[in-house]
């Protein structure tokens, strides 16, 4: 009997260890990013690093200001949200409240497909269709830039927005809608004036999730944004926080200030993501409590 108890305790300990692995991973990632991100920030100076307008990492007199990347990431994400959220939102309301089960099933698998397409495929299609289209429509010398990135990101966040919004719209109690019908509201009015406000925490969570995905996307953006460290402007070639890291990592030499600065950029990106995660958690919790 004693032996059994020891055996069970060992098994318990093993599972406890496995359970704590996710926590360990988060701690390790955070610690590694901080350790490798701090030196360059110290050397360059936090203000110069965050608010410097010029990035010239390989120049004779190197400059490491990442304000262009930060602003590009913020503008790019905001643009993607402005385009992607309304489209996703109206699609979600239609699928959750109006579409018959057949249409809904087909559209849901289509949305899942959209979610499953690898980001490089988005990048490839963007490179060959979107970029030339922007060049021709707006008559600019090069179509790759912020606008192309915004459109690609808007498409990429669409499935997240639709799926999370549908889940929370489905969860709205039928009594709310019945009460609204009884007061003489039409179905459409009910959906938008009763169901949507009731699901607003979930929809907010969907938006935050979209923000997270847009700000973290690297490869698709890398292929369509042109990748020059300019201050953001719609038709100019730009770099995001993610692509700034990805584009110079391959040729920066280990231990150099350039590489350390790339780690610092990653640290800044990580901070953004942590903020977004906290916001996401807040909305999801509120959605559940309701």
């Amino acid at each position: 009997m004693r032996k059994n108890k020891i055996f069970e305790d060992i098994v318990h300990a093993i599972f406890l260890l496995l359970g704590l692995i996710t926590v360990g991973c988060v701690v390790i990632i955070t610690v590694y990013l901080i350790i490798s991100g701090i030196p360059a920030i110290k050397e360059i100076g936090l203000i110069n690093f965050l608010f410097g307008k010029e990035w010239a990492s390989t120049a004779a007199d190197p400059k490491f200001g990442i304000l262009p990347f930060i602003l590009t990431s913020i503008y790019g994400t905001a643009g993607a949200i402005v385009i992607g959220v309304p489209v996703g939102f109206f699609t979600a309301v239609y699928l959750s409240k109006i579409a018959n089960s057949k249409v809904r099933a087909i559209m849901e698998s289509a949305v899942n497909l959209l979610a499953g397409i690898p980001s490089v495929v988005y990048g490839l299609v963007g490179m060959l269709i979107l970029v030339p289209a922007i060049r021709k429509t707006f008559n600019v010398p090069d179509g790759s830039g912020l606008l192309a990135a915004i459109v690609v990101l808007a498409i990429m966040i669409l499935p997240n927005i639709i799926k999370v919004s549908i889940t929370s719209l489905d969860a709205v109690p039928i009594e709310y809608e019945d009460a609204s019908y009884a007061l003489g509201a039409s179905p459409i009015e009910t959906f938008f004036k009763v169901s949507v406000p009731a699901a607003k925490s979930g929809i907010a969570a969907a938006v935050v999730l979209g923000v997270g995905r847009a700000i973290g996307e690297a490869m698709a953006v890398m292929m369509v944004a042109g990748n020059v460290a300019n201050m953001p402007s719609l038709f100019q070639s730009v770099r995001f926080l993610t692509t700034a890291v990805a584009s110079e990592m391959a040729y920066s030499s280990p231990g150099s200030l350039q590489r350390n600065a790339l780690f610092s950029i990653a640290l800044v990106l990580y901070m953004f993501i942590m903020l977004i995660n906290a916001a996401l958690n807040f909305f999801l919790k509120r959605d559940k409590e309701k």
Binding site: G216, A218, A266, L269, I273
Partner: peptide, 8 residues
């Protein structure tokens, strides 16, 4: 973990 971007 599921929110961390793949580049990180």
């Amino acid at each position: 973990l599921s929110g961390i971007p793949s580049i990180i």
